[in-house]
Design a protein around this nucleic acid. Structure first.
Length: 486
RNA sequence: CGGGAAGUAGCGCAGCUUGGUUAGCGCGCAGCGUUCGGGACGCUGAGGUCGCGGGUUCGAAUCCCGCCUUCCCGACCA
């Protein structure tokens, strides 16, 4: 009977509401849902089994998509000679502030320091130069699943950790056209992964020069809106031109036996995507997981005790087996805890569908089904048809989740044609506005509103006019998306 | 690195102002019993170098000095 409001003790069971403190909501949720924990070293993260299962599911789907488009997995070393980083001028400049460097090993100082990879363009570039000699070797399409280290100043679980897991694709091509096609193909894969697996609608587009990857000629991104209406860059795809192939001497002999530099790409998606899932779908009760990434798509909560319970358990096990036979990840929660506790617990963990099964249900040959989005309330479903209906229910759940996120994004996106409207809109969500393209003007906007250009959207309508900030003629030929971001 | 807050049991906190016996409370945890359709209850119990180092004092969680760490807000970023 503790006081409800203002009393921290009353919250032991729940989490801080999003509207009160989004950042507290996020941290408490990640910890309480047992997705991750903080490691002993600042900025490091332990991914716990429930969170790691999500990563595994993500990996399996993306990996399949990569292989279907002709890529092969490989693995390159964690340690890179420091000199490699320096071979591409912009690349070092971009990454040196956040490098972790090994200076001692084997009990003595190293002759050349080794950097712990912050990304692998350099080692892979070096290896590509040894492997590629003919146009017949191209394109070379490689991906690696790995950990990387970037000494971030302000870590945040999943969103920005000192060490994180990701996949980085690296490819080499005969020319710019082929490399650009690859860059866009992989961006497309990220878009469909986000939409079809994570149920997150994204805006795809190109980064402005100021937001480009260090060493890239063009950087493309997918940007998603979180429930606090801030943007999260969820994956990127880069066209390097011949920058890295010149730095690492990646050349091939063409059909006329002329030695030519390759054009390369790289593209990556990290554990940050799990942060996107948490923040794009979660609510005040906890996570809401898209079926594609949910460790348990259905949880069956058996209710009852004694002899009644034995019959319930048996029926629950049969139901789970039935569902699994249909490719559904089902779980029976047999813990010694009250039903109410389990309901809340699985809601916190975001399980899409919950099945309640008790003596009353058994007697009437049905079960109670509840979807985590909650719109339909509790629904009685006949036991003989339940398992068969689950795949459709999960698809419907995915569609509803995507629809909800899509309308949320639409509701909080608006065009802004003058500075006051712009400043107000980036406080509300995303603002579509014309910009002059000058870096100093971007900085000015950031200083004034904390908003940055997220991208030049691929599907934007052609439009010319004047910059929303400085009034100079607009660049890019269309509106940019601006938002405060993570 | 700038600005804020905080380090006391696994988690969340009180105690500190005005030093004083075995440092408390809630949740969680263990055992037993009763419970089980929206976060159950009773009884019993385990669990703490009070962040670290030094100082003041007969006596320090409490006062003084130094250090460390973490979290939040900003600059950097997937």
């Amino acid at each position: 009977m503790a006081a409800k409001d203002g009393n921290p003790k009353a919250r032991d069971k729940g989490i801080t509401p999003q509207g009160e403190d989004f950042s507290a909501w996020y941290n408490e949720l990640v910890l309480k849902a047992e997705l991750a924990d903080r490691g002993p070293v600042k900025g490091t993260m332990v991914i716990r089994p429930y969170g790691y299962r999500m990563w595994e599911l993500l990996q399996a789907r993306l990996d399949q998509m990569f292989k279907e488009t002709g890529h092969q997995n490989a693995y390159f070393p964690l340690l890179i000679p420091e000199s490699y980083l320096k071979r591409e001028a912009e690349h070092v400049e971009g990454f040196s502030p956040e490098l972790a460097v090994v200076t001692h090993a084997g009990g003595k100082e190293l002759e050349e320091p080794l950097v712990v990879r912050p990304t692998s363009e350099t080692v892979i570039g070096e290896m590509f130069s040894r492997w590629i000699s003919s146009h017949r070797d191209l394109p070379l399409l490689v991906n690696q699943w790995a950990n990387v280290v970037r000494w971030e100043l302000r870590p945040r679980l999943f969103l920005r950790t000192t060490e994180f897991l990701w996949q980085e694709g690296h490819t080499a091509h005969v020319d710019g056209a082929d490399a650009m096609a690859e860059t866009m193909r992989m961006l497309g894969i990220y878009v469909s992964f986000a939409r079809d697996v994570a149920a997150i609608p994204v805006i795809e587009g190109e980064k402005t020069p100021g937001e480009r990857f260090a060493g890239a000629l063009r950087t493309f991104t997918i940007e998603a809106m979180m429930r606090d209406r801030r943007a999260l860059q969820s994956a990127t795809s880069h066209y390097m031109g011949d920058n890295f192939s010149r730095a690492f001497d990646i050349t091939y002999a063409n059909e006329r036996n002329e030695l030519v530099h390759c054009h390369t790409t790289s593209w990556g998606l990290s554990t940050r995507m799990l942060g996107a899932v948490i923040m794009a779908h979660g609510d005040d009760r906890g996570l809401v997981l898209p079926p594609g990434l949910a460790p348990h798509q259905v949880v069956i909560v058996p209710i009852g005790r004694g002899d009644e319970r034995a019959a319930v358990d048996e029926a629950a096990a049969r139901l789970a087996t039935d569902m699994e036979a249909r490719g559904v990840r089902a779980h029976v929660d047999g813990r010694d805890a009250s039903p109410g506790f389990k309901f809340n617990d699985w809601e916190l963990r975001g399980v899409p569908l919950r099945v309640e099964l008790g003596p009353r249900d058994l007697a009437s040959g049905q079960a109670v089904v509840v979807a985590r989005l909650g719109a339909e309330g509790k629904q009685a479903v006949g036991l003989d048809s339940l398992a068969a209906s689950v795949p459709d229910r999960l698809s419907a759940f995915h569609a509803a989740l995507l629809e909800r996120a899509t309308s949320f994004g639409d509701e909080h996106t608006a065009a802004a044609d003058d500075w006051d409207a712009f400043a107000a809109q980036v406080g509300e969500g995303f603002a579509n506005a014309l910009h002059c393209g000058r870096a100093e003007c971007e900085d000015d906007i950031k200083a004034g509103t904390a908003a940055t250009p997220r991208c030049v959207p691929s599907d934007g309508e052609p439009e010319e006019g004047t910059c929303v900030r400085c009034g100079l003629p607009s660049a890019y030929g269309k509106r940019l998306v601006f938002a405060r971001s993570y």
